[in-house]
Design a protein around this nucleic acid. Structure first.
Lengths: 335, 335
DNA sequence: CTGTTAGCGCCTTCAA
DNA sequence: TTGAAGGCGCTAACAG
């Protein structure tokens, strides 16, 4: 049957409480005793029951990663980032995709907390901006960290980057090549990051004294299909853009497909730029110029913020975004 | 504080044991009583503690999904498939990436079982083919299902597809366009599916009486970078191929990048084909012709096999692979 | 520094 | 068809 701390305590010749102490790295255990217990644990191949620890104690050694995001690359990167940090403390990560449009969303997340006893929650975009969700978490007093939320309040419990500035950076890059009619494929507006990126788009145009043409701003859903459709709408319009800036790389890839389908040469007749620098940006042709978002680092930092007891300033370690020029805009000639 | 079955029992005017019965959908509860209890559970917003159930009972209502796979799309699709089935039975899915090359792999998985009390395990490729892992699981008597293993034994506990036949199908397609020198970028050989695909490559050539040139078979790692490098090696060789068949879509995308970087026109001077039909196949240009693998369905079926008590033949519901022609080979002209 | 006693929330016997 | 003990493996609060 299962090996318990009682088995370990017998093997080590101590009380089972001492084993518990060693397990929890508590102070006040003589080094020799500790070593004996650890040796016994190894010899018996002892593994503590997370269920029992959660039930008896105040912690469950589990955290939940919750998201509703249409980009597999993004989700995967977030998972890897959180996982990397969890591994350090032997914390289990409960991956929980959810449905943003469900009216029961907050209740479901609340239920998850109760059922699993998780010690904390990481909210991947755009969940950090859903008030119903954060309210539910606040009500329960569960610790949580939001990745890249748009809401400026509660600055201490989030890791973030400046989406507006990043988008403006890309826009200046495009404008620098002489583009005036630049289409923008925006993400869904319930992602606050999408709103911020749109702000950056607008401010950079204003900065260059280029009038904003609302017909050039179209909505997408952060995935390939909607990007393709949105780009199609732009390209089939009365006065199509000479460049398209997509709100993320999945949509940029869709835009490429739309251009190709219409026989529009990229980058000679049309520049396309993305945002995220997931692997997709390298997989498509021509290689996309994108804003590299430190997704993995953001996720790692979020987990760090949640797990760190000694208040290390994890957020400070998050690298900034950067513009990655890969030639699709760099060799652009005006259409 | 936490709402427990005791609170529910008081509200419903029954003993807490009766609440437990309702929770577990046991027989021998009068319908009226059951309804009263269910109403109380809803009114109090009761959520059972998974930890307590796991500790007290024989089940934990959790299963583990274990994988080591470099393709984010593949991993994401597998997760969604398993999750869809878990949702039906309110089973929690523990997502567990692992490291195939770790000498402690089996021990780590064994530890996971002990720590979490999971009721079963789903092994995504290539874990189903690692004897050390399946041995560890067998020793513990944990139920498990393998997704697309290469090993022909234990047919009842796996869901699978015929990789060799699928690869041969693609090869016949390429050969039908007149290709004779067809490069093959294989996946890592510790994926048995990679071995099977190579078999299909070889058998189709034999069938067409084309001699196999071992210089045309190169190794990749199932990701973009290795695909790019492998294709580069093929294209820079003495007598480059007129077509390249990559062992999965990520590598096919890499091959496209390698061709583009060398100014080789695809599909006019070189045909490229992939395998998997993840979104990547549509994102790249030209759109890849691929083998569509029913990844989601396989994952769903695997979970179904694990969770179904009444032995429904889930595996029978798995749709077969199919060849998806998108033009990159269809408009091929010989180089 | 170490051990004792009492639960955590639920399921598993048993008995009624 | 329901209820009453007992315990799952561990931690919390106390003693020593």
């Amino acid at each position: 049957m299962r090996i318990t701390i009682r088995d370990v305590s017998e093997a080590a010749g101590v009380s089972f409480k001492t084993v518990s102490r060693v397990l929890n790295k508590e102070r006040h255990v003589r080094p020799a005793t500790r070593e004996r217990v650890e040796a016994a644990m190894k010899a018996l191949n002892f593994r503590p029951s997370y269920a029992a620890r959660a039930l008896a104690g105040a912690r469950s050694f589990q955290i939940a990663l919750i998201y509703d995001n249409p980009s597999p690359y993004y989700v995967h990167t977030i998972q890897m980032g959180v996982r990397a940090r969890c591994l350090k403390d032997r914390i289990r990560m409960i991956v929980q995709p959810c449905d943003l449009t469900s009216p029961a969303l907050a209740a479901e997340i609340g239920g998850l907390i109760d059922e699993t006893h998780v010690d904390g929650v990481i909210l991947a975009p755009p969940l950090g901006d859903i008030a119903a969700v954060t309210d539910e978490l606040d009500r329960r007093g569960v610790a949580y960290v939001r990745i890249a939320p748009g809401d400026p309040t509660a600055a201490e419990e989030r890791v973030t980057m400046d989406d507006a500035a990043a988008a403006a950076l890309m826009m200046r890059h495009l404008i620098g090549f002489g583009h005036v009619r630049i289409g923008f494929i925006n993400g869904p507006l319930d992602h606050v990051s999408a709103q911020r990126r749109l702000e950056g788009y607008r401010s950079a145009l204003a900065e260059a004294a280029i009038a904003v043409d609302d017909a050039l701003v179209v909505a997408g859903g952060f995935d390939f299909e909607t990007g393709e459709a949105a780009a199609g709408a732009l390209l089939d319009g009365a006065t199509p853009p000479t460049a398209i800036f997509a709100g993320n790389d999945d949509m940029a890839a869709g835009a490429l497909a739309a251009a190709h389908a219409r026989g529009i040469a990229v980058p000679d007749a049309l520049s396309i730029a993305g945002f995220d620098d997931i692997d997709l940006a390298r997989a498509v042709w021509p290689p996309l110029t994108t804003i590299r978002q430190p997704i993995h680092a953001l996720a790692y930092a979020a987990a760090d913020l949640l797990l760190d007891t000694d208040e290390g300033d994890a957020a400070g370690a998050v690298p900034d975004y950067e513009l990655v020029v890969r030639g699709s805009t760099g060799v652009c000639r005006m259409g």
